[in-house]
Simulated scan of single mutants.
Amino acid sequence: MTTLRLRPEDPADTGAIRRVLAAAFARPDVAVPPEVRLVDELRGSDAWLPELAMVAEYGGEIVGCALLTRVLVNSGAASMPALAMGPVAVAPHRQRIGLGTSVVQAALEAATELGERLVVVLGDPAYYRRFGFSRADQLGLTSPWSGLGEPWQALILPPATSGEPSPPRGEVIFPPPWSKV
């Protein structure tokens, strides 16, 4: 029986994660997909949160990843921390068996356990809706991708305590590596 293990990545996983991203986002017109470069650059930035870089290990092989990195929501008077999801990838030979769903759920659960309140994503609404994401503009969030409508999404995570303030509203500020995607 093949075992699925979901866990934060460790430094030894970098090469395997690059291979998963390169295979999942392969295009004939580019040697290295932008998603690979994005993750490489995020790893070297202040936005990198190693405890929220989750991998799916299936049968001892890294076959999927879901990354959450730090963004800020500028609400005018203050900036509040939030998270951006992406990229999410599964090796092509292991797609369509639920590994993507599992690694995304693991990342969101880890974020909730750490007391995070808000996750944004740019992605397929039909896919991310299953996790509770909805249109970010309807939650008062803007970004460079706001004009795309439904793919610009957000998820409010459950608070650790009932007295926590509501999640921030405003402009989501992404770290510089995101501007190259």
Rank of each mutant, 00 (worst) to 15 (best):
L52N: 12
P81Y: 14
A91Q: 06
Y58A: 14
N74L: 08
L67F: 08
V32Y: 10
D29H: 12
S102W: 05
V90N: 08
V88T: 04
I156R: 15
L108I: 07
S75Y: 08
G44K: 13
E171S: 13
L108C: 07
D13E: 10
G100M: 11
L67E: 00
M1A: 14
H93P: 00
S134H: 13
G44D: 13
A24G: 02
L21F: 12
T3N: 06
A53F: 10
P92S: 04
I17K: 00
L42Q: 13
G115V: 05
V121Q: 05
S75R: 01
R135M: 09
P167I: 01
P175D: 13
V90E: 01
P81A: 11
E164T: 02
I156Q: 13
L122Q: 05
V36S: 04
P167H: 01
S134R: 15
R5M: 10
V36Y: 14
V119L: 13
R96P: 00
L118A: 07
L68C: 03
R19Y: 03
P81M: 11
A23T: 04
G59K: 13
V172P: 00
L4C: 03
G100R: 11
L108V: 07
A22W: 00
D40P: 04
L157G: 13
W152G: 00
I97Y: 04
A22N: 09
L67T: 09
E113V: 11
E164Q: 05
L83D: 03
E171R: 15
P168A: 02
L49I: 14
Q138R: 15
P158T: 11
P87Y: 11
R96M: 04
C65T: 10
P167D: 13
P176D: 06
R7K: 07
G86H: 06
G59I: 08
A24W: 01
P144Y: 14
A78R: 15
G163K: 08
P125L: 12
G163F: 00
P175G: 09
M85C: 11
L38S: 04
L122G: 12
A78S: 11
V36E: 01
A16V: 02
P159A: 11
T3I: 14
G170S: 09
A31V: 15
T14I: 10
P175M: 01
E57A: 01
I156Y: 04
W152F: 10
T161K: 06
A89K: 10
V104D: 12
H93D: 15
W48S: 03
A31F: 09
G98T: 06
P87L: 08
G98N: 07
V120L: 07
D29V: 05
L21K: 09
L99I: 06
A136G: 06
G170E: 04
A47F: 13
E164G: 00
G147V: 02
D124T: 06
G60I: 04
E61N: 06
D46K: 08
W48M: 02
I173D: 02
D10E: 05
R37C: 03
R169T: 02
R18A: 15
L141Q: 05
T161W: 01
P175A: 08
V119Q: 14
Q153T: 07
R7C: 07
G115P: 12
E61S: 08
V20S: 02
A126F: 09
E57N: 03
E57H: 03
D137W: 07
P33M: 00
C65W: 01
T161C: 06
A56R: 07
A22T: 08
A89E: 07
C65Q: 08
P144C: 09
E113D: 07
M1C: 06
L42F: 14
A154C: 06
V90Y: 09
